[in-house]
Amino acid sequence: MQVVLAVVIGVLFSSGIYMMLRRNLLKLLIGLGLLSHSINLLIFASARLMRGRPPIVDTEGISTSGYADPLPQALILTAIVISFGVTAFAVGLAHRTHKLVGADDLDRISETERL
């Protein structure tokens, strides 16, 4: 399972970077989204994968080897919230740029600067 997860993280990360290297503004946003997904999975994997273990240990039976770490999920939740806000802002920005410049090609947006 860990290998699968590692591959998924890698694929997501590299496709995110690939998307960001395109000239299209919208693909930049999609790339950002993919990148943040891959990092969320990375944090998830950092907690070590476990199945059927409780996240909270009872006061009686503390066995440190046998519980699933809940903290990374809290971290991921926060990261998702943040990336949600940031993506929403970036979509707004792209929308506005598209309206002002009439193009979603980053090279053409740069050209208008020089004119």
């Binding site: 806000g85 707004g92 929308h95 506005r96 309206k99």
Partner: peptide, 13 residues
């Protein structure tokens, strides 16, 4: 508040 601000701004433009 945040989500509706964004949605309204995007929808109205």
């Amino acid at each position: 508040g945040v989500v509706l601000t964004i949605i309204f701004v995007l929808e109205e433009e």
